[in-house]
Measured scan of single mutants.
Amino acid sequence: MEVRTIKVFTTVDNINLHTQVVDMSMTYGQQFGPTYLDGADVTKIKPHNSHEGKTFYVLPNDDTLRVEAFEYYHTTDPSFLGRYMSALNHTKKWKYPQVNGLTSIKWADNNCYLATALLTLQQIELKFNPPALQDAYYRARAGEAANFCALILAYCNKTVGELGDVRETMSYLFQHANLDSCKRVLNVVCKTCGQQQTTLKGVEAVMYMGTLSYEQFKKGVQIPCTCGKQATKYLVQQESPFVMMSAPPAQYELKHGTFTCASEYTGNYQCGHYKHITSKETLYCIDGALLTKSSEYKGPITDVFYKENSYTTTIK
């Protein structure tokens, strides 16, 4: 009895394709271990004539594949690729409408935090270190965002349907971005203890939790000093293409032309909904596939993004 075979390709990165001759009487799992086709788990399936010449994702289970996976995804987590594939199996079914010149995501599976993050990423200057993220990001900007969303979920250790947080998501993504040249110098002034300067680099240099107003941050924000008295913390120097200011959701007025974009969060910790506000020729609110415009805006804002380049204080 002759062994019926077909020729397929296996890959971990969709760049390096490895030619395989597979036995049609055995499952993919018996031949390769966990195997995925377009995100779908085909591990328990036997090869079919229609699979001839198709590319299958496999887990990096030998040295060659491990090197290829690390170079593309910059992670050695053995569960990463499987999590990416199972997320992709959902995100490829989502709709990605162009809204006001940006790629958004039609609401499904509690994905409003991903839509808000995706919209924000198209408006701030950011370059990702893992080629996987950078490639998928370019495709997302062009309207094909399924891979990018699935990668975000995998890097953030999230599953489809789980509630997510924009600030946490951005923080994970910033860790995989090139923020080497970003720098922030802060000064804390206390009447009792004097003053202390701190220099922050990388992710810490672009994120701040405690106030939404970048102007206020430049002037000074009140913080408790270690001595128990009130101290003032203010920005001395900022070198970065953008800054992200966050605070627990509270009524906040966004003035046209003073910011790049913002995240609105309605609801409580267990259950809520994100919308995205962007400042173009007027203010726009993007909620999944829905767009509304207004000249002014007041609502429960939790993150505001500002364009920056270089700032030095005039406070002496």
Rank of each mutant, 00 (worst) to 15 (best):
E281Q: 05
Q238W: 01
P97T: 10
V67E: 07
Y73V: 02
Q134Y: 05
E239N: 13
L173D: 01
C285G: 10
L283H: 03
Y234A: 08
C190M: 01
F305N: 04
G288W: 01
A140P: 01
S279T: 08
V3S: 12
V22W: 01
G202W: 01
A150P: 01
F32H: 15
E253D: 04
S310H: 14
T91R: 00
R139Y: 09
K298D: 03
G39E: 09
L59R: 08
L290P: 06
V203E: 04
Q122A: 02
I286V: 15
V67G: 13
D38N: 11
H256G: 10
S295W: 13
G202I: 00
V243T: 06
G257P: 04
K255G: 04
S240C: 05
K158G: 02
P130A: 12
Y172P: 02
Y311P: 06
L133F: 00
R139N: 13
D62K: 11
G143T: 01
V3G: 13
L200I: 11
F70P: 03
G39K: 03
G299V: 05
L119I: 00
E71P: 05
M24A: 10
P300M: 15
K7G: 10
S79I: 06
E215L: 05
P224K: 15
C261P: 00
Y269K: 15
G228S: 04
T75E: 12
N111V: 00
L291R: 07
E52W: 09
D287I: 00
Y265F: 13
L186D: 06
T19M: 06
G202D: 06
L88Q: 03
T76V: 08
L200A: 13
V21C: 13
G29N: 11
S240V: 03
C112K: 05
E253K: 11
A177H: 01
A289M: 10
Q195C: 15
G161A: 02
N187V: 10
K95S: 13
G101V: 00
Q238H: 03
K95T: 15
L212Y: 08
V166Q: 02
H18L: 09
T278H: 04
G228Y: 01
N61S: 11
G272C: 06
M85C: 06
T76P: 14
R139M: 09
Y214A: 07
L163Y: 15
E239R: 11
T91E: 01
V42C: 10
T64A: 10
A117E: 03
K218L: 05
M207N: 07
K7N: 14
K183R: 10
K316C: 14
E125F: 02
V12F: 08
H90G: 12
K218I: 05
K127E: 12
T91W: 04
T312Y: 13
C285I: 15
M26Q: 14
I15W: 08
E296Q: 11
V99D: 00
K54G: 09
T43D: 06
D13F: 02
L173M: 11
N49C: 11
Y306K: 05
K7P: 11
R83S: 05
Y172W: 10
T313Q: 12
L179I: 05
V58R: 10
H18D: 07
A250G: 12
Y252A: 07
N110M: 02
L254R: 03
T103H: 05
K316D: 15
P249T: 09
V203Y: 12
M85E: 05
E264Q: 04
T314H: 11
Y265R: 07
G288Y: 03
F148R: 00
S79E: 14
C261G: 09
R184D: 03
L65M: 11
F305K: 08
Y274G: 01
S79W: 10
Q175N: 04
F70I: 09
K54V: 10
L118F: 13
T43G: 13
F80N: 00
K255L: 08
A177D: 01
Q195V: 13
V42Q: 08
G257A: 07
K92H: 10
D135W: 09
A145W: 08
P131H: 02
G101S: 06
T103Q: 05
S279F: 02
Q31W: 10
V221D: 06
H51K: 02
V189Q: 14
T43W: 03
F217P: 03
Y28K: 00
R139P: 04
R167K: 06
I45T: 13
T314G: 15
T5L: 12
Y306P: 04
F242T: 06
Q31P: 00
T278I: 07
Y311C: 07
K307R: 10
V8K: 03
P248D: 10
T159Q: 10
Y113H: 05
Y137I: 07
L153T: 03
T266F: 05
A177K: 04
T55F: 03
R141T: 13
K298L: 09
I15D: 00
Q134G: 07
T278A: 14
A136V: 01
V160S: 03
L173G: 00
P47A: 08
C156S: 08
Y28A: 00
Y84P: 01
R66M: 11
T314L: 11
I124D: 01
R66W: 07
T91F: 03
T198K: 13
G53T: 10
K44A: 12
Q197E: 05
A108T: 14
F174A: 09
K95I: 15
Q175T: 10
G39F: 07
L212D: 04
A150L: 00
N111C: 00
V221I: 14
Y155K: 01
P60D: 03
M26N: 15
V67P: 08
G272T: 04
K275N: 00
N61I: 11
Y172L: 13
L212T: 13
K54I: 10
T10G: 05
S279G: 04
G194L: 05
F148H: 01
L186A: 08
E68Y: 05
G33E: 00
P60N: 15
Y84H: 03
T278L: 10
L133P: 01
Q31S: 10
A247M: 06
V22Y: 00
H18P: 15
N100T: 11
A142G: 10
Y36I: 00
V21E: 14
T169M: 08
F148E: 01
V189P: 02
A145S: 03
Y274D: 06
T226M: 12
N187S: 12
T198G: 04
D63A: 15
Q195S: 14
P130G: 00
T159L: 12
K54D: 07
Y36D: 00
I152A: 15
Y234T: 12
K46T: 15
Q270P: 14
D63S: 05
H74M: 04
T10E: 03
K219C: 15
P241S: 10
L17S: 11
A146N: 00
L59D: 15
N110H: 07
E204L: 06
C149Q: 00
H176G: 01
D180L: 07
K298E: 11
G257T: 08
Y234C: 08
P60A: 06
T103D: 08
L59N: 10
T302H: 06
Y252Q: 14
G267I: 07
A87V: 06
F128L: 02
Y28N: 01
R184Q: 08
K229Q: 09
C193M: 02
I45F: 11
K316R: 09
G164M: 07
T192G: 12
L81Q: 11
E52Q: 13
Y137S: 03
M1V: 06
T314Y: 15
L283K: 05
N178C: 15
T258S: 11
N89E: 08
V160P: 10
T116M: 05
V3I: 14
S295V: 11
S310V: 14
P248R: 09
V206I: 12
K95L: 06
S294M: 15
C193I: 05
A289T: 09
Q175G: 08
T11H: 05
L153K: 01
Y36T: 01
K316H: 11
L133M: 05
T312H: 13
T103R: 07
Y113F: 09
N111R: 00
A40Y: 12
Y57S: 05
G210Q: 08
A205S: 12
H256Q: 13
K7C: 15
Y284K: 07
H90N: 11
F174T: 02
G161V: 02
A136M: 08
A146T: 02
L119W: 05
A289E: 14
S25L: 15
I45H: 00
K106Q: 15
G53C: 10
K233Y: 07
A250D: 09
G228P: 04
Y172F: 11
D303K: 04
L290S: 13
V12A: 10
F217K: 06
E253T: 11
F70S: 15
E2V: 08
E264I: 14
Q123H: 04
I15Y: 02
A262K: 03
M209P: 07
K106D: 02
N187D: 06
T282F: 07
L102V: 00
D109F: 02
T266G: 10
